[in-house]
Design a protein around this nucleic acid. Structure first.
Length: 284
DNA sequence: AAGGTTCGCAACCGCCGGAGT
DNA sequence: CACTCCGGCGGTTGCGAACCT
């Protein structure tokens, strides 16, 4: 079992920073032959690099559609919003930012955004609020990490998401205007279903059983659907509408029952009137 | 000006899952 | 079913630049 490492250190391969000549060789080769077959590419292109290194250099630096330059404030906000939802799934986040690479976003998060959020430290507010004991101000690092992850709805381990569960309570208000803008086909029980008609027919049923949830299976390959899903905005519980109207990226989730508004006020979530999609399920 | 420290980014590393046999 | 190969991913490292004392 096991496999030999892709890049053996004793093959006399070049390591470290790439030279202009290496970049040119790689660029010329990929432009001529296309991406892929990275393992054999170095030999064919005349490069003394391992295939993985070539792939990384191309994807993160040489690709023509790479957007170089500072990450804008809007991009920052989107990254934070996506990170709240997806966790450290940088490739997925990068997929939502044209021209940005997962490596770039990961670096940006580690050097800027992550520190910024830690500085703001909404978690500590939450812990203080939930635990009245004044002796518990010191945050257990492990607990802090758990909280940092738990305020994301989705666990961070890269996994294939194929089901979203929408409760009756959550679904009914979603049918009312503004409607969900989803035009893509959802695969339910292996049969393609138009989500709009599915949601409409489901909402029209006079079902008061709050325990009855609707599971929507969809294929992650359909990234357009996922994009729309992420773009969806959901209305707020009535008690909060005056404060924030629609949920915005400025509302930071602390856990699945608590969130923090931009004025640092902490709010408990009322699940009976909750109209947000808050639960996701993943295959095992 | 020099030495030390911090920061930002490119690159590396090891692991994982899907595809192929 | 077992095994190998390959591409992809996220965490980590190393190094040059920028900043600080």
């Amino acid at each position: 079992m096991g496999r030999s490492p892709c890049c053996s250190k004793d093959k006399g391969l070049n390591r470290g920073a790439w030279t202009a000549m290496e970049d040119k060789l790689l660029t010329d080769y990929v432009k001529t032959h296309g991406e892929g077959n990275w393992r054999n590419l170095p030999k064919s292109a005349g490069l003394k690099r391992c295939g993985k290194s070539c792939r990384l250099r191309w994807l993160n630096y040489l690709r023509p559609d790479i957007k170089r330059g500072n990450i804008t404030h809007d991009e920052d906000e989107l990254i934070i919003r996506l990170h709240n939802l997806l966790g450290n799934r940088w490739s997925l986040i990068a997929g939502r930012l044209p021209g940005r690479t997962d490596n770039e976003i990961k670096n940006h998060w580690n050097t800027n955004l992550g520190k910024r959020l830690q500085k703001d430290n909404p978690i500590s507010l939450n812990l203080k609020k939930k635990n009245p004991n004044p002796n518990t101000k010191k945050i257990d690092p492990h607990l802090f990490k758990m909280n940092m992850n738990s305020y994301c709805v989705v666990r961070t381990k890269a996994t294939r998401c194929n089901k979203v569960v929408i409760s009756q309570q959550q679904l009914k208000p979603m049918i009312a205007p503004p409607p969900i803008s989803v035009d893509h086909v959802i695969h339910n029980d292996d049969k393609p279903v138009e989500p709009k008609s599915l949601l409409s027919s489901f909402a029209s049923k006079e079902v008061d059983n709050n325990d009855l949830d609707l599971g929507l299976d969809f294929k992650m390959d359909d990234l357009d659907f996922f994009s729309d899903f992420l773009d969806m905005e959901f209305s707020q519980p009535a008690s909060l509408e005056n404060n924030i109207g629609h949920l915005s990226p400025k509302a930071n989730y602390i856990d699945d029952q608590t969130f923090l508004l931009s004025d640092d006020s902490v709010h408990e979530w009322d699940f009976q009137s909750n109209t947000n999609l808050t639960r996701s399920e993943f295959d095992n």
